[in-house]
Design a protein around this nucleic acid. Structure first.
Lengths: 139, 139
DNA sequence: GATTGATCGATGCACCTGCATGCAAAACCC
DNA sequence: GGGTTTTGCATGCAGGTGCATCGATCAATC
């Protein structure tokens, strides 16, 4: 049976995580922008170059079917482009389009605001470090 | 623009929260048990007695429409009973049934295991306190 | 180089959630 | 009291998620 402190930490972890995600999503939606997952993908493709769904899936920890449909929507929206993969004909190369990069850039201010209001507005610098350290052990 | 530590903390918060929730849900489902939200409601009704949806909603921070359907399913499953509210005929009193209490008890070991593996297996006691404190400031 | 098994990605289905709205009862206000 | 606003809960609809499974391709073993 978990101790009281563990229960407290658990409850707050679940709650804080849900709230944070929800707020970020709401802020983006209010600005007419896509959800946070899109940002993560756009960012990954921008930083690390075009890659296969499988790799994105592992790096971001998204379920296979979720990512598949996510990419389909983003492709539909013109933010990424799917190209046939020459070395493995099952796969596809998912590349960031110019429009995709523009979208990522457009999302950043709003996304960043959510992060600031969740983390920086409530924790001073050394508390942020503490939180990051504790959370690393959990994830 | 958020600092690097804030970004790190944010990412881990989102990730750890999602992972924790997902693991708890998966564990319960694997044991043929209802999802974690059900536990929270059953627990609340057990501890604090029968009450109206509105109160549950505020205490647990659930969206109104989510709770409405959640309670409908739990009622359907016989875990709670909806009784007309005498003091406000719009409302209903949601009460825990014996079957509901049994379900809550049956869920606890599995739920507790998820909490232990997420918190207690990875943090020693004073780290748990630190985490709880940091998360309180965020939530 | 053929068979067998594993991996990649898509998708049908059922369920769940978010949003907007509806209806009914209460609270407010003149 | 009569009309307006607010509150409590339910729900139709659109969209997202999880699960299982599929077709296609690759890899491994013989």
């Amino acid at each position: 049976m978990p101790g009281a402190v563990s229960l407290l930490a658990w409850g707050r972890l679940i709650d804080a995580g849900a709230r944070a995600r929800h707020k970020a999503r709401a802020g983006l939606k209010a600005a007419g922008l896509p959800p946070p997952e899109w940002y993560d993908i756009l960012q990954l493709l921008g930083r690390h170059g075009a890659q296969r769904p499988r790799d994105i899936q592992h790096k971001l920890g998204i379920e296979q079917y979720t990512l598949s449909r996510l990419l389909a929507r983003m492709d539909q929206a013109g933010l990424v482009a799917m190209q046939p993969c020459t070395v493995d004909r099952r796969g596809q190369i998912t590349a960031l389009t110019a429009q995709g990069e523009a979208c990522r850039a457009a999302m950043w201010p709003t996304y960043a605001a959510a992060i600031r209001s969740a983390i920086e507005a409530r924790l001073d610098p050394d508390e942020r470090v503490q939180l990051a350290v504790m959370l690393e052990k959990i994830a």
